[in-house]
Design a protein around this nucleic acid. Structure first.
Lengths: 215, 215
DNA sequence: TAGATTGTTAATCGATTAACAATC
DNA sequence: TAGATTGTTAATCGATTAACAATC
């Protein structure tokens, strides 16, 4: 062992906390760009993200001098810089499972598109829905999932199905090769260790907000 | 100043981190109860919440000895204990703004009901929708919002409307006295300092998951 | 008893914050 | 110039982790 070996100045991988915060900044910046905001200060970013302004400046200054003193950060160029840092500047394809009300609402919104995620295929296990269209995309049978994941380079599966069906469809996604699942039903999913499940839980956020409101 | 004054053993207010984690544990426990799970270990809770098992045991042991060595935690009684700690054991009323696809999907699911939040009123500014029903509840006109907030003790407003309408409806909620807003449109909302806005941002979670998947 | 898992300690690491010089 | 806000330091606080005795 060489105890005096120099450590690299920049770690190859961001810490969980930094990556999470940078993702949040990016979301706010994307919305700020939409309303034609040119610059934004760490103070303003703090109000929208609930992250301390010093922490924001510290997070950003670790990667370069992106701001202008007395002015703030240029919204558009900061978006580009953060995308580079997160290495997620490209386009990523996602599959939506479930063509019900929730699935339709998701497909019709731009919550994913704004961040470079494109819904490229929609699946449902109800034969009645297969063949109908949501926007430009046809609703396809689950049996086509495996082929679609491979052909369309799908990296994320979004589950917008009732809790009772979610485990079975999660299994289908995993077996088709998807390693990141976003679960809109709150139910617990059993997946292999190399699969990441993110569960949507608006009530958790509310519970937490309520605690500070009540105390 | 008396420098030797003893500090209280239990702080009056939980730290932000502890409150957020307890809320997450509660969500998983609620789902675990649904599938008739009797006990759960810190290891299992860790797999579902992505919180370190030692951290979980530490968080809980700060409030009492809730677990049984060699066995784990009783799901049902741990739910009760955490509800007591969060002081959110009661029922809290929420108003849903927006009776479109997303609003209807939310009203028809139990994501909020599972955590003691009851949707007691639904509003929409489209006259075509006013008077129709979603489940048991009639869709009401925004003009009735103020009275409903007072009469039905509404503490949370959930915005399920298009981005273009969200600021105006957030203003209505604030003026009606609501201090916690959950915003399903990603758009930035300007609110007074005493109002808390939580923005739903599934894409932020995905971006973050993707970073670790790609690196 | 044997196996499993909690409760708790101690050590380390990263997050948070205040403060302020630099500078746009 | 005057005002505002970044970039950065230094000090503190809370989160994280490994390890293990206690005990169900």
């Amino acid at each position: 062992m060489n105890e005096t070996a120099p450590r690299p100045a920049t770690p190859e991988r961001l810490s969980l906390g930094v990556a999470a915060r940078l993702s949040r900044y990016l979301q706010v910046l994307t919305e700020a760009k939409k309303i034609a905001k040119q610059t934004i200060s760490s103070q303003e970013l703090s109000e929208y993200t609930h992250v301390n302004p010093t922490q924001i400046r510290r997070d950003l200054s670790g990667f370069g001098k992106f701001g202008k003193r007395g002015v703030g950060y240029n919204v558009e160029s900061l978006i580009e810089e953060i995308r580079k840092i997160l290495k997620t500047a490209g386009q990523h394809n996602i599959a939506l499972i479930g063509a019900g009300r929730l699935g339709t609402a998701i497909a019709s919104s731009d919550v994913f598109a704004d961040h470079g995620f494109q819904i490229v295929a929609i699946f449902d296990n109800d034969p009645q829905k297969v063949g109908t269209r949501i926007g430009e995309l046809p609703v396809r049978s689950i049996s086509e999932l495996r082929a679609a994941v491979a052909e369309q380079k799908i990296v994320v599966g979004v589950l917008a199905v009732p809790p009772a069906a979610s485990q079975q469809l999660a299994d289908e996604l995993v077996s088709a090769g998807v390693r990141i699942i976003f679960n809109y039903s709150g139910s617990l999913l059993s997946v292999p260790a190399d699969v990441t499940v993110h569960t949507s839980s608006p009530a958790v956020d509310l519970l937490y907000a309520l605690y500070f409101y009540l105390t």
